[in-house]
């Protein structure tokens, strides 16, 4: 557990709406034997909202509105994440910590002015984090993997949106989630035997030139997504 999180009372798990990728959902669903719809619900987003440029969401109806998947909230506390555990002494802990979404794993850090920094909207208390003690190499790597998965998530959404535009699928949240889950599973399982290509891409992100490995990764994402779309379209309704 990160040093700065050890005395935390879970403020970041309350009032923040946690946007997740299909890869996050796949990991949680696999480890917890949950269906994707038990994990996420849709939230409308605006272009450029979010931590990176690759934020454009999926079309879920006949309009141009875009949606992204966010973690569902607790039935007991409307603001709290449904996976938050309530322990003695006001302590809170994540109930899916080993496979929590990447955005949670890198919180409250982001790349700012070329280096790792605390996010402007960090809910942590003053003094929780001492930047002199942060493992910069590990955090930069985690942030790069996080960014890579959001690029890939945007690729999955793009294939879907193109199909919606062409009339190839009937847009709905359950249909999109089923499709995105299949695409993410294919991508992660295909790459599982290949020593975590996302991490290799993250390494490649550190030097100047990131174009080639990113493009190879996104090409793979598009192929897997198109395959998942064909499967989804062929499935009986």
């Amino acid at each position: 557990m990160s040093e700065g999180c050890r005395g935390c009372t879970g403020r970041c798990c309350y009032d923040i709406v946690v946007h997740v990728t299909p890869f996050d959902v796949w990991r949680i669903a696999s480890e917890q034997a949950l269906s994707p719809l038990q994990i996420v619900e849709p939230r409308e987003v605006q272009p450029r909202e979010g931590p990176s440029a690759a934020v454009f969401g999926a079309r879920l109806d006949a309009t141009e509105r875009r949606f992204r998947c966010v973690l569902r909230k607790s039935p007991h506390e409307p603001l709290a994440c449904q996976f938050l555990l309530h322990l003695g002494g006001g302590q809170k802990r994540c109930g899916i910590y080993p496979h929590r979404p990447r955005v949670c794993a890198v919180y409250p850090f982001a790349i700012h002015r070329g280096s790792v920094d605390l996010r402007d909207d960090a809910r942590c208390g003053a003094g929780d984090w001492n930047l002199a003690l942060v493992d910069y190499a590990a955090m930069r790597r985690d942030l790069a993997v996080y960014d890579a998965e959001w690029h890939a998530a945007a690729g999955i959404a793009t294939v879907w949106n193109d199909a919606v535009e062409a009339g190839g699928v009937t847009p709905s949240f359950p249909a999109f989630v089923t499709y995105a889950h299949a695409a993410a599973g294919t991508i992660l399982e295909t790459n599982a035997a290949d020593a975590a290509p996302l991490e290799r891409w993250a390494e490649a992100l550190l030097p100047e030139d990131v174009t080639a490995p990113l493009q190879r990764w996104l090409d793979g994402v598009r192929l897997a997504s198109e395959g998942a779309l064909v499967s989804a379209s062929a499935a009986p309704t």
Binding site: Q32, L34, Q38, H76, Q82, H86, I96
Partner: peptide, 18 residues
């Protein structure tokens, strides 16, 4: 159990895992 996470659909999952 304090480590049981209650999900929005009424189901529950263990927050301790392994």
């Amino acid at each position: 159990c304090a480590f049981l996470a209650s999900l929005s659909d009424g189901s529950a999952r263990c927050g301790l895992g392994e």
